Amino acid sequence: MHGPTVSGWLLVTLCGGIGSYCLVRMRACAGSARGSAGSEALMGFGMAAMAVPAVVFTPPDWAWLLYTGVFGGAAIGSLRSVRRGVHQAHHLIGSLTMVYMAVSMAYPAGHVGHSTAGVPLLTGGLLAYYAVYVLRSGARLLPTAVPAGEAAPAVRWGEPPALAGACRLTMGLAMLAMLVTL
C-alpha cells in the first residue's frame, strides 16, 4: 500500500494475526461457520500481504494479477453462498474490494473512475460501506444484559465471546485504512 512504513507493518501484523486466529477458529467450527472462518482467514492473510510496505518489498507486476485471481475466485465462492445470509454478502463485498485494490495497485496512475479532484466514486462508496460496517460491528460488541433466570450462552474453545466479532471489527478497520491509502 502507499501508506507510511510503520502503519504498514502494524497492518501486516494485525491482519496476519487475525488470519492465523481464523485458521484456528476454522478447525473448531463446522458447516457454514467453518467456511466463514476460512474466508476471513484468506482475507486476513491477503490484507497482510498487500499491506507490506513498498519500501521493504515491491511485489512484481504479476502479483497483482494473482491477487485479482485469488480474490475473484473467493468472490465467486461467496456469490454462490450469499443466499445464506448477510455475512456472506459481506464476504462478497470484501473479496470484490480486494480485487479493486489489487487492480488499483497494478495501475496506480489511473484508478477506475478517478478524476483529478477528490476520491474515486467506488473508493468513496467502499469507504462509506466499511465505516457503517465498523460502527455496526462495534455496536455488536457492546455487552448486553442476560435476562434473570437465563443462563449465559455456552462458550466453545476457539470462539471466546466476542472474539470473532472483534476480529471482524479489526479487519473492517484495516480495510478502511487500506482504502484511505489508495
Score class of each variant (00 low, 15 high):
residue 116 T to K: 07
residue 45 F to M: 05
residue 62 W to K: 07
residue 136 R to A: 14
residue 109 A to V: 10
residue 24 V to S: 12
residue 52 V to E: 10
residue 84 R to W: 10
residue 58 T to S: 14
residue 29 C to N: 06
residue 19 G to R: 08
residue 50 M to R: 02
residue 148 A to I: 13
residue 108 P to G: 08
residue 180 V to Y: 13
residue 113 G to C: 07
residue 140 R to E: 10
residue 121 L to P: 02
residue 1 M to V: 02
residue 100 Y to N: 00
residue 119 V to G: 01
residue 166 A to T: 12
residue 174 A to R: 01
residue 55 V to L: 08
residue 102 A to W: 07
residue 84 R to S: 01
residue 4 P to C: 14
residue 57 F to P: 03
residue 141 L to N: 08
residue 105 M to D: 09
residue 130 Y to I: 00
residue 25 R to Y: 09
residue 31 G to F: 05
residue 165 G to V: 09
residue 3 G to Y: 14
residue 34 R to G: 04
residue 134 V to S: 07
residue 5 T to I: 15
residue 6 V to F: 14
residue 55 V to F: 07
residue 104 S to A: 15
residue 25 R to H: 12
residue 132 V to A: 06
residue 24 V to D: 10
residue 144 T to I: 07
residue 20 S to N: 04
residue 53 P to M: 07
residue 166 A to V: 10
residue 161 P to E: 12
residue 173 L to G: 13
residue 104 S to N: 09
residue 62 W to A: 12
residue 69 G to I: 07
residue 86 V to L: 11
residue 56 V to P: 02
residue 40 E to M: 08
residue 45 F to Y: 11
residue 63 A to C: 10
residue 62 W to H: 09
residue 132 V to L: 13
residue 17 G to Y: 00
residue 11 L to G: 07
residue 4 P to D: 15
residue 167 C to W: 02
residue 59 P to Y: 11
residue 71 F to E: 03
residue 104 S to M: 07
residue 134 V to L: 13
residue 165 G to T: 11
residue 170 T to Q: 06
residue 162 A to E: 12
residue 15 C to W: 00
residue 23 L to R: 14
residue 26 M to K: 03
residue 1 M to A: 06
residue 79 L to K: 02
residue 104 S to P: 01
residue 79 L to E: 02
residue 77 G to L: 13
residue 118 G to D: 01
residue 27 R to V: 09
residue 111 H to M: 08
residue 165 G to L: 14
residue 59 P to L: 10
residue 102 A to V: 09
residue 100 Y to I: 05
residue 180 V to A: 13
residue 91 H to M: 03
residue 9 W to K: 12
